[in-house]
């Protein structure tokens, strides 16, 4: 049987293609719904937050899933990026048009966050596991305190006056860029080196992999994208206050990564979108909303790790069902021919 292009691809490229397809079809579906007036105001208000959370989850997954280190300071990187990018955008409010301002602000925010990622990365190189988690957690809290005590960040009352440039298209472009960089990195020589560090750092070092260099790279790259997400956040809400970026925010991002599966980029994308939509879609439940949201998270976590459920999911996967149907159809056809 002649294989088609899709089947000829490397397995990882095929997987990545599906991830891109999911994103693009979501984008297309939203655009079509928008054009045909089927998009509610409520849902469209969630589009940019979905993009923000997807970028955050995917970039944190790089540290947790690929490098295998637990970082609890992702909200800290996000806040640094957000403040840097928004201050830049405010400065150039009158000078640059929105189409130029937002990408530049994202670049500035991302670079500054990456710099902080590097700064944290250096002491963090000596730590592992729980200790690393504690240091990153502390880092996030320190940043928050510093931001509150500075004047040019607006202090406790928050930074106001950032131009509201973020659109779904811009957010979507940022998501695709993030996916492109991280998926390609994971599939490259560097990605394999990073994963080898996760599996066994000593063995990896013995074959000449520069552990410190790669850890620094992952930390700053992950921070870079967190910074971009921060700028997107700052450009979609008219007030940026430091209290948003507390450790609860870091935990929320961690939940997305764990729920989607560590090391699975597609999982992070879907989980991030789901976790953004879920609490909002339950507004009709009024007082029970947060209770049921928590319950739903617990159920999802249990099902996600339950072997039996995985078997069931495997048995019900679209591809399997399709091939089953095809087999069944062929069998029938052959039976008819024979008979």
């Amino acid at each position: 049987m002649k294989k088609n292009l899709f089947q000829n691809m490397k397995k990882t490229s095929r997987k990545n293609l599906v991830t891109y397809l999911i994103c693009f079809s979501f984008f297309a579906a939203v655009r079509i719904m928008g054009a045909t007036d089927n998009l509610t105001r409520h849902f469209s208000s969630l589009l940019v937050p979905i993009c923000i959370n997807v970028i955050l989850a995917v970039s944190l997954n790089l540290v947790i899933g690929f490098l295998g280190e637990l970082s609890l300071g992702h909200a800290g990187f996000m806040s640094v990026g957000a403040y840097a990018g928004c201050l830049f955008a405010i400065k150039f409010k009158e000078i640059l048009p929105a189409a130029v301002r937002l990408p530049l602000a994202m670049l500035v925010g991302g670079m500054v966050a990456a710099l902080f990622g590097l700064l944290v990365g250096i002491p963090v190189l000596r730590l592992k596991g729980d200790y690393l988690a504690i240091v990153t957690l502390a880092f996030g809290e320190i940043l928050r305190s510093v931001i509150i005590n500075l004047n040019f960040t607006g202090g406790a009352s928050g930074l106001k006056g950032t131009p509201q440039d973020a659109t779904f298209t811009a957010g979507f472009a940022a998501v695709i860029l993030t996916l492109f960089v991280i998926l390609n990195l994971a599939d490259s020589k560097h990605g394999r080196a990073i994963m080898s560090l996760r599996e066994n750092a000593i063995a990896a070092s013995s074959v000449g992999i520069n552990a410190n260099g790669y850890k620094l790279m992952v930390f700053s790259l992950s921070a870079f994208f967190a910074g971009i997400a921060g700028v997107l956040y700052g450009s979609s809400v008219s007030i940026l206050s430091a209290s948003t970026f507390d450790y609860n925010k870091s935990i929320e991002i961690l939940v997305m990564v764990v729920l989607g599966g560590m090391g699975s980029i597609r999982g992070s994308v879907i989980a991030a979108a789901l976790i953004t939509i879920l609490p909002e879609s339950m507004r009709a439940l009024a007082d029970y909303r947060m209770l049921i949201y928590a319950l739903a998270l617990i159920v999802m976590m249990i099902l996600g790790t339950s072997e039996k459920f995985m078997l069931l999911r495997h048995a019900l996967s679209p591809r399997r069902l399709l091939s089953k149907a095809v087999k069944h159809f062929r069998y029938k056809k052959e039976g008819q021919n024979n008979g």
Binding site: T40, H42, S45, P49, S236, S241, E280, M290
Partner: peptide, 19 residues
């Protein structure tokens, strides 16, 4: 509506009320 004092959620709550 509930917004947990979060600006982003407040905007979503506003949008849902507008709907």
């Amino acid at each position: 509506e509930d917004d947990q004092a979060d600006p982003l959620q407040a905007v979503s709550a506003y949008a849902s009320l507008m709907d």
